[in-house]
Design a binder for these strands. Structure first.
Lengths: 222, 222
DNA sequence: TTTTTATTTTATCTTTTGGTCAAAGATATT
DNA sequence: AATATCTTTGACCAAAAGATAAAATAAAAA
């Protein structure tokens, strides 16, 4: 969930506007349907490449009807990004320096790859936004993400100092974990081409998780 | 370089067409300028999100002039992809089972991350094409890439059998190497936000390389 | 220099796309 | 049932974007 005392860029805050009535069931259902469709289309074509028409089609409604719920393409994109941030900034396993790195980092990897399994499209929308230069999310990366990473890095450094891990740069370790876990979502099509499998496949999911953890843990533990 | 006896999808073959005269200097210069500009714009916005105008601007020429060199947006995209494939399918370090996995895989990682440093935009165009469902490259992934991976996997299996590496799934190892190395190109903006550095920075490049290799090698060697 | 060929530009056309509007159709409230 | 409100749609608009044609300019060949 979004940390309420963390400043988000315009249009990405969680607060509901002023004194509006609560949404009807139809509103809720359609908003959700649209957001799902938009996430899928944006994940494939990015903000600029996606069209409202495509999204409306996928959501099984007319374009004007979609615009009845979201006033513009940009508003819809912001809503999708906001949605994604709620997932993406979800309090990730806080590395607890009291516990062993093996346990803590293992749990962190588990969480990250579970995200890739559950929200592969969200992952790709995010990747797309980054590739486009992060026009909307830059402020979030520059502040929130930076802080998250620093916090985790500090814990890892403690483990290193305590001799529970080999001496590596915590930042690169964190990036490796991200890279590897997100890869299974972002490059699902490629993986499917080569191996004929995606994370939807239970067996493959567990095997991926096992292999990633095995190699990384072995690579960093003493 | 493209393997000439490997079938590429229409429009991606290397062969020059029939009996056309060689290109003038102006042709060569402008085609190159356009391809560079197109690679940059496509890398940010994908095929659908990019506009000919943007690309023409970046290449410092008018839109009709650009279309004088490439007859359509699609033709230009195909040319860019073809260009990228030449890099991307460049004979990657063949893993030599006679040599040690340490040396061979180390060299492979070096090569992959060097690619990310030299051609980050190409890497992102590729990532974008994959995210869009690989409409053009699917045939290449299904055949060539698949074979490349199988070949490398076979060698890794030999090393495992010979007891020179721990027993891991070669496919996951290969994907981990790809994920980690490409990440530095594809998520350069994010990394820059968090660490204030990119692979352009010599120190950072070497540090990244060192850390990646250290963790992965330690993770797989006996 | 003259002629031919190659390149660039201006104007224009068509299609796509984001967005509006007013009317019609559903739902809910009284 | 009558009224008010909410939802949906078809018709439309303006701007953007892909593409073409023909004239103008520059470069190369004769």
């Amino acid at each position: 969930m979004l940390n309420s005392n963390f400043p988000l860029p315009d249009g990405l805050d969680t607060e509901k506007k002023g004194g509006k009535k609560k949404d009807s069931r139809i509103q809720v259902r359609n908003r959700e349907k649209i957001l799902d469709a938009a996430t899928e289309i944006f994940s494939m074509y990015g903000y600029r490449g996606a069209t409202i028409d495509q999204i409306a089609n996928k959501a099984e409604m007319s374009k004007p009807n979609l615009l009845y719920y979201f006033s513009s393409k940009e508003a819809l994109y912001l809503a999708v990004l906001h949605n994604i941030l709620e997932i993406w900034l979800q309090p990730l396993k806080e590395l607890n320096e009291q516990e062993s790195p093996e346990h803590e980092i293992g749990a962190y990897i588990d969480q990250k790859i579970e995200f890739s399994r559950l929200y592969p499209m969200a992952s790709r929308v995010f990747a797309n936004e980054i590739a486009a230069g992060a026009p909307i999310l830059k402020p979030v990366l520059d502040t929130y993400l930076r802080d998250v990473v620093r916090k985790k890095a500090r814990v890892i450094k403690k483990w290193v100092k305590r001799g529970e891990m080999i001496d590596i740069d915590p930042y690169h370790l964190i990036m490796m974990i991200w890279a590897v876990t997100q890869h299974y979502a972002d490059f699902a099509v490629q993986i499917d081409s080569v191996l004929g499998k995606t994370l939807d496949n239970r067996r493959f999911y567990n095997q991926s998780r096992k292999n990633i953890k095995q190699i990384l843990m072995r690579g960093i533990l003493k």
